[in-house]
Every structure is written in structure tokens, then in C-alpha cells.
Design a protein around this nucleic acid. Structure first.
Lengths: 129, 129
DNA sequence: GTACGAACTAGAGCCGTCTCTAGGTCAAGA
DNA sequence: TCTTGACCTAGAGACGGCTCTAGTTCGTAC
């Protein structure tokens, strides 16, 4: 049940380049096992971890911070408070980002409404003529 | 009531560098007026426009697309449908981004909860001892 | 008149995040 | 045997979005 880098790329949506990049950046929880010929063999755990990393990246956590978190996990038990701090801090940032996004959305929606009304009124006139 | 680039930087949160950069990139709706000595003089309109650009940027609209929108506005009446298209497309992207962010948030919140419980249980034990 | 601070321009540099290249290995199939 | 395709490494390159530098010009205050 080991997967090649290509298969993992396929089912995570990351490129093989990105997968090697992430590994080089040290954001994989455990060293990827190597098969014959030095090829990477990923486990389901690796994929689960990658999916979490993707979530963190998607929500704007920088690679170095993911690495810090990963390092803590690698070090094992005893540093849960530090992990919690990182997660909470990020949670706060994401919350702020969501608020900001919502503000942008409101503005855009207002503008879309205005333009839509205008375009409709023009269309109505054209029909009337 | 014209404002210097420094004043505009102060009240928009952009750097003077960024303001010049935006201008060079052509995302200001109207040419910035120049005062004595060739210095930029911004009007309230400019600031309003900038604030909208900031919103668009914040929500992930790339500079070239803001420029396209700006160009349409500069060209004047008659292209409202195109402007509407750009805005609607962006609106869709922002909506998707919000959904994705919410998913990330859910994951993070779940993890924070788990770690919090764990940390609490450790703390309780420590007190018990 | 000179020093200071804020502005000007053109263009180089930086940062983060990939993405691609070059040159090579390996296994399986025609 | 030759080809193909997926993989390997190290390192260069691309891209977006600023950010900074160098050298200059102003206007005002001492």
C-alpha cells in the first residue's frame, strides 16, 4: 500500500515538484521511506499529514511555521502546549482573514448589485425601443 | 484639500513605495495630479479608489486584473457589462476562498480542541499530584 | 547658505513559493 | 537492445508583489 510520488501528487493535488520541495523544507512529519532505486514510498499517514499541511498552507500559514509545528510533532510528547500556541495563533489569523474577506465580499457584492441594476436598466430600455 | 503621497500612505496603510508602484502599474482610475516640483497631489477620489483597490488586492485579485478593471473605468461609459463580468468572476473566487478558509478553520478548531483538552488534562493531573 | 525632510525617478533587489532544467538511474515492454 | 516513462538530485529560474537604493530636487527653518 505504498504510493509513488506521482500517485501522491495525483491524490493530493500537489505537483511532484511541490512534494519534493515540501520534503526538502522539512514539513513532512516523518522521513519518507525509500523503495528500490531510492524512490519515495508514501504511506497513508504521509498523505494525511500532507493534507493537513495543504490546509495550513491554503489558510496562509507560511512554510517555516509549518516546519516549526512539524518539528514539535517530530520531537514527540511533551510540547503540546507549544503546538497549541502555534495552532491558536494561526486560528486567530484565519479568523481575521475571514472577517477581512467578508468585508471585501460585501463591497464586491454591493458593486455587483449596482452594475447589475444598471446593466438591466439598459437592457430594458433597448427592449423598449 | 490635496494630500501628499506621505499622507495618503498614512491613511491607507500602503507604503509610499507601494503607492508609486500601483500608479506605475496603472491601477489608479485617474492620473494623479502633480503639484509644484512635480509632487503628487491626491484627492479624496483617489483615496476612495485606492481603498477599493486595497479591498480587491486583499481578497486576492491580481494587479493585472485590477488594471483591466481600471482601464474599463477609465474608458468611460459603455463597458459596464465587462466590468460586471470581472467583478462577478472575482466574487465567485472570493466565495470559494471563503469556503476553503472555513474548511481550514474547522480543521484547525478541531485540532485546537483536541490539544486544549489534552493540555487541560495534563494540568489537572499536575494539580492532583 | 546650509541643513533637513519629503518628495522625485529609474531600476535593482528581495521574499516566498513553487517550477523547471539538466543530467542521470532504473524497470518493463516492443 | 532500445525506448519509454517515472523517478532521482542539485540547483537555477519564474513570478507576484512589493521594497529599497542611488542620486537628485524642492521648500522651509535655522
Amino acid at each position: 500500500m505504498g504510493l509513488s510520488i506521482g500517485q501522491v501528487a495525483e491524490r493530493t493535488g500537489l505537483s511532484v515538484h511541490a512534494l519534493r520541495f515540501y520534503e526538502k523544507e522539512g514539513i513532512l512529519a516523518h522521513q519518507v521511506h525509500r523503495g528500490p532505486g531510492g524512490r519515495r514510498v508514501y504511506t497513508q499517514q504521509d498523505i494525511d499529514w500532507l493534507r493537513m499541511c495543504i490546509m495550513l498552507r491554503m489558510s496562509g500559514m507560511p512554510v517555516p511555521e509549518i516546519r516549526r509545528y512539524t518539528d514539535l510533532v517530530r520531537q514527540g510528547d511533551g510540547n503540546e502546549l507549544q503546538r497549541l500556541d502555534i495552532l491558536k495563533e494561526h486560528q486567530e489569523r484565519v479568523a481575521q482573514q475571514m472577517v477581512r474577506l467578508q468585508e471585501c465580499m460585501d463591497l464586491i457584492t454591493r458593486k455587483v448589485g449596482i452594475y447589475q441594476d444598471y446593466v438591466n436598466s439598459i437592457a430594458a430600455k433597448a427592449v423598449g425601443q
